[in-house]
Write a protein that binds this DNA or RNA. Structure first.
Lengths: 248, 248
DNA sequence: CGCGTGGTTGAGGGGATTCAATTGAGGTGG
DNA sequence: CCACCTCAATTGAATCCCCTCAACCACGCG
């Protein structure tokens, strides 16, 4: 647990104390696992818990009645899943595992308790939710205003960056366990065009396909191609005004 | 204040008590106004407060170095602006008013205070943030997986629906004070194509241009064209499990 | 009354889509 | 051990949606 991606991320915030981490431990129920290709949430269903992914990949998506599907974001180790879901009667999105995953969950009671009794922890969890929202913003820009190749390169760099931030070792953080259809549904294009865009990146030696996984060969050049600006992923300590407004 | 759009929305939640509303009042500093076309936040700047819009329209956007711009969402009366911004050193988006606006703001201290001392209010504000995130999700679907005309119709219906939810009278909720360039930057298309899509909707009698504003003529048919499903905007009371976990 | 902003439309080109066909890697059952 | 099936990747061809360039108009304003 001490080495979990969540811990790793929260420590980079540098303002949680040992007691906060203890409380965090206490929040979790037992660890759960799920195989790959499993549904962790279905569109229109109800949420009864909040989860934290500690291992594996999943994705969050919405689908249209005619079968079109849009992937909203990727869920990586250390990510909170369904932070707001407890506040709504139905979940509007689906969640599907891309690999086998392990996760912890906490119940509504425990979570609300923590918000009342551990303000610093509450801020830390909100901060994670805020990170999430920043990533959604960037996904909108990506899909709305970037060309197909840019989109793909940009997504690759983001995923790589996020994996590193979760404490995943560098080489593992360059392997992405996704099919090209997933890419297409993420980037808002057809799978045929996803393949063509992918191939151009391959031709330029930036990326390749190995053992059914996508492998980044040159993250720096990819960032170049993508016009990637990591600002929205930066994990800094809290601004002073907020920091000083916190109890303790 | 009692008739403000924020109040109107929170009351539809049906679980805040009179004392919560009192505390909410206490959070606000004086009311502020700004003219149209003014910047309320600049990309890369710092946030020092959270705002609630009580009148007027604004928009939140990100821009790329080469001048491309993507509008992330519209800010309407009753919306919270920058809920998470206090947790980050820099704001990654810009905010620009579309019309003259009036708003209230609260400081970090007051907001954090409220989260510690008024759990039900904290949940209500989080719920608003959750609403926001649902809208971002839908914006991703809109831009990623809908055709140009669908996109536009869908946006129109969402805005109409949200205005009604904010307590704006029906006829006023059909007037949108935006130029077609704004539409283009929201929907991820060129302004020329935004115009062509718009003209298509005009030809079908669903919408028109009046006094420099967009005027909805037939929201129901627009919803039809858009394949609009209001699920993601539904304002229901909290799920039971969460409700019962709340103090009091 | 000249200028800027916003809307509108035509023409031409290019990026992306759909339809289709082929290949290869696994997995399964006989 | 191989025929057979499925899933994923790949590529060609035709088409179409959307983009850029460009021109023109309407309107409001200093």
């Amino acid at each position: 647990m001490e080495n979990s991606p969540l811990h790793f991320q929260l420590e980079s915030l540098r303002f949680l104390e040992a007691t906060d981490f203890d409380i965090l431990e206490g929040l979790f129920t037992r660890e759960e696992t799920a195989g790959s290709g499993k549904l962790l949430a279905i569109e229109g269903g109800a949420a009864d818990k909040v989860m934290v992914l500690s291992k594996g990949w999943a994705l969050r998506y919405k689908s249209l009645p005619d079968g079109r599907r849009q992937i909203l974001n990727f869920l990586l180790p250390g990510d909170i899943v369904g932070f707001f879901a407890l506040l709504f009667k139905t979940v509007e999105y689906g969640i599907e595992t891309l690999t086998p995953v392990t996760m912890n969950s906490f119940s509504p009671e425990k979570l609300l308790d923590a918000f009342n009794n551990a303000p610093r922890l509450a801020v830390a969890l909100s901060w994670l939710a805020g990170q999430d929202e920043r990533q959604l913003d960037e996904q909108i820009v990506r899909v709305g205003r970037r060309s197909a190749t840019e989109r793909m390169a940009h997504l690759f760099v983001e995923l790589h960056y996020r994996l590193l931030q979760a404490g995943i070792p560098g080489d593992e953080a360059q392997h992405f366990p996704m099919k090209q259809t997933i890419l297409a549904d993420t980037l808002g294009m057809s799978h045929v065009h996803a393949n063509r865009s992918f191939r151009t990146l391959v031709r330029e030696g930036l990326v390749t396909l190995r053992d059914g996984e996508i492998l980044l060969l040159d993250p720096d050049s990819l960032a170049q191609v993508a016009g990637f600006d990591a600002g929205y992923l930066e994990q800094e300590s809290l601004p002073k005004a907020t920091e000083s407004a916190l109890p303790h």
